[in-house]
Design a binder for these strands. Structure first.
Lengths: 237, 237
DNA sequence: TCGTCCCTTCGTACGCCGTATCGCAATACC
DNA sequence: GGTATTGCGATACGGCGTACGAAGGGACGA
């Protein structure tokens, strides 16, 4: 049977995991991957490393996952579970969407590597779908066709993703290039000063000099703007 | 001199390129990298591959760039040049921001790999800064403190990034897993059907069945919502 | 109880990758 | 013409994902 060695196809979540005969299970592998990614970043997650962490040999992992991509998909969906809001959603659709968006942000702050995964491929695992379902349910009180609801949650989600992407990038910066804040400043300042001196950046120069003003409610403000715009449009219809 | 072999530090853009003695220049390397990424995706860009493309040996590239990360930074900033709007911006700040946002989207549609770079690290090259400067200049007619302007462009940019991230992900999907649309459908449908059958997704089931309704003005609509919300807030102040 | 089959484990090996190190040759400068 | 500098590249190292196939143990029918 030549095809017995063929690589598994289709979404990982639709494929059976191997029967557990020891502690080496798909679940344990995913959990170990998550721990490594949380502690050392996504680049530290290698098949060899995960195996070592579990006291197994490298190739044993392939009994339970089809490839490294599979592992990353499973990790992403596992983390997506944290986005789900437990309990009832607020009745008001704006409050409900806000609560959900906050949770997205918090989950990414806990697991910044989610950003890198999400920018590589769509995650359509069960937890991610539960999240979309929950978000759609936040709009169930609205008299709107399903496409309209989808447009709303897509726009809100796009804003959250973008914010969270930018935030995660800024938070990861020190670890990625291995600089302390002082080093970073020492390296960047002369470069930025030279750019300021060209006079090419009249509107930006004050910000480059003083740094970017960052208050914690930037996220809330942008979200409020967007929801205001949506509410006005719905009210007009 | 032990420190002569030390790795270069600080932002790439602040470091001198080597003097060109042949066709092997920093610029040529970046251009070759861009071509490969456009044609085959970011994963196809390796130092060895870029060198081969230029008819050089692998290690010669390191005369002109400090590391692969440097090359990726330079590529990202090169692509960022395409985001700059040539000529005058519209006088109305909403129109100006819209024009800029459209250009961001178009640039990423041409170079989907930008998404992966941008989710890894901040790009603060000259072209990216020119882009931010241009965006700030779109608000120069507004009577708003500089922090306020920054909050506005940050929110608009977050929305654009999020949309464009989602769009790029969807567009890259077929290439990434090497499925045709038919295969994708064949693999996904039974999986989604099983999820629908659980009854856990009452709000989502219609969308999973019929696919996501995608019209081309989703981007414009979300942007309009956000700008409406901002305009109202500014008008009230 | 004894085969038989299946399924998990994993040793080995291949072809990629980024890049440290260092010799060499050509150029630039005095 | 001699010397210092600098671009180029051969070699090598330690990582990676994973194909292949051998080995061993549990399940199960005879």
């Amino acid at each position: 049977m030549g095809e017995s060695t063929e690589r598994a196809r289709g979404p990982v979540w639709a494929r059976d995991a191997a029967k557990p005969r020891s502690a080496l299970t798909r679940e344990a592998i995913v959990t170990a991957g998550l721990a490594i990614a949380d502690a050392e970043g996504l680049d530290a997650v290698s098949i060899r490393r995960v195996a070592a962490e579990l006291g197994a040999r490298t190739m044993s992992l392939y009994t339970h996952i089809g490839s490294k991509e599979d592992l990353l998909d499973l990790m992403a969906d596992e983390a997506a579970a944290e986005v789900l809001v437990p309990g009832e959603l607020p009745g008001d659709w704006r409050e409900a969407l806000t609560v959900i968006a906050r949770r997205e942000r918090e989950a990414v702050r806990r697991h910044p590597w989610m950003i890198e995964l999400v920018s590589r491929r769509s995650v359509v695992g069960p937890n991610m779908l539960r999240h979309v379902e929950q978000t759609m349910s936040a709009l169930s009180g609205l008299d709107l066709p399903i496409e309209g609801k989808f447009h709303v949650i897509a726009a809100v989600n796009d804003y959250s993703s973008g914010f969270v992407l930018r935030e995660a990038r800024e938070r990861m910066a020190p670890r990625r290039d291995g600089w302390t804040d002082a080093e970073r400043d020492a390296f960047m300042r002369p470069y930025l000063q030279r750019l300021i001196d060209t006079g090419e950046f009249p509107n930006l120069a004050p910000l480059m000099k003083d740094g970017i003003p960052s208050t914690d409610d930037n996220f809330e403000r942008g979200l409020r703007w967007l929801l205001d715009g949506i509410a006005r449009d719905l009210g007009r219809g």
